[in-house]
Design a protein around this nucleic acid. Sequence first.
DNA 1: CGCGGCTTTGATGTTCATCAAGTAAAGTGG
DNA 2: CCACTTTACTTGATGAACATCAAAGCCGCG
Lengths: 231, 231
Amino acid sequence: MKISYDIKSCVTCIYRQMLFGDLDEDEYVLINEARTEKIFRKGEVIVQEDQPIDSFLYLRKGLVKLYKTDEHGKDHLLSINKPGDFVNLLNIFSDKNYHYSVCALEETMVCEVKLDTLKKIIASNSKFALRILNRVACISDDVITNRFEISRKQIKGRVAFILIYLADQIYKNQEFKIPITRRELGELISMTTENTIRTLSEFKKDGIIDMKGRVITILDYDRLHNILKTG
Amino acid sequence: MKISYDIKSCVTCIYRQMLFGDLDEDEYVLINEARTEKIFRKGEVIVQEDQPIDSFLYLRKGLVKLYKTDEHGKDHLLSINKPGDFVNLLNIFSDKNYHYSVCALEETMVCEVKLDTLKKIIASNSKFALRILNRVACISDDVITNRFEISRKQIKGRVAFILIYLADQIYKNQEFKIPITRRELGELISMTTENTIRTLSEFKKDGIIDMKGRVITILDYDRLHNILKTG
DNA sequence: CGCGGCTTTGATGTTCATCAAGTAAAGTGG
DNA sequence: CCACTTTACTTGATGAACATCAAAGCCGCG
């Protein structure tokens, strides 16, 4: 992890508009003073389950996974998050400690704002409070909806789901290079590594996708979408 | 559904303390004017997936199930909720329409507050806003944690989970009468009716529980808890 | 260049859904 | 209140879906 103090980048930061658009000058100064930029390398843990929460994090660059670890040490991914997502918002208002971990899948930059400061501003600015409320609700809604979709499908449908999710939501492209291992892909759809690979191989054999290492290309989107719906 | 206008009951309502404790007199009058009490009989649908959300609901008496219906018409329960739970809080700040349904499992009384009024008060009272924020976060956190626990267990662990959940969280008693069918119990733990029953029968045969129709008694809590942990 | 992690395929066994069939309980209409 | 219908509950048998185990090739890195 590296710490950066490039304050200028704040001015053009898209999150200033998205989340902090309603703040007045004083409040914005407050946030800015309580703010630190941090850079995490691939594989570094940003947030650790059971650790105390002391700041609000927003993802500026990179990609992270949100996950829980069970008593056997096996990870279960809840979601993959990209810039614009508020990585720990899911949990910061519900408890003192994190209920999950966040880890960088590639070089990732986060802005960290002291939680006390954020709460102070929520208390003083009701428009901002409603905006935060909306973000929290949307994030948990997404997690619940995605987990629900995955849990009621079987393996082909799950793999189709995650491929379409990556293509449409994350990369906005039919071809993309996944930054995660096959094992993590399995953890994301609650399947073993082996069966995840088997299904990907089968999709490749059927001409639905192409696969070269971690580069995946969706060749027949319609067929994949059909598997998603029926499977 | 019956509509009641028993305003007096408000004065002693526990939710006045829990959620509305920070309101000043004007705000409280506002809420009260925007409020309706409704009574639903067993089986009546309180909230229907995809319908527009126009009010905030809090459960005063009874028991409800929160669920989603898939394209085959099969229901999947997300949670069971009791008085003190805010039945639709999960969703009211994330979208215009409901993403799930709520149905009464027994005679249930809800108080309904116009959503516009609630938002007005959030905008004017920051302490209240933080309280709502906390409740939203806790509810989604509970749903995510419970679904997570269930999804990574196999059937015996799931049945143990739901029995301990009912005993500890809902009824606070080792003996309780479930208001739901075996099918719904299965839908709650993502299992078929048959396998749910089979597992309950097995627990009975092993002397872990006793079962007479819908009355269930936990005889060996320790053993059940052990199955929960290992299963 | 060899070690460890990632990837892949095959064989085997377990878990669970599905199908079937029967009993018990709860509504329903005469 | 009783015959009738429907819904809930239960057990067994079968097969499908999936996890697990095993083994081998691959790739990056010290």
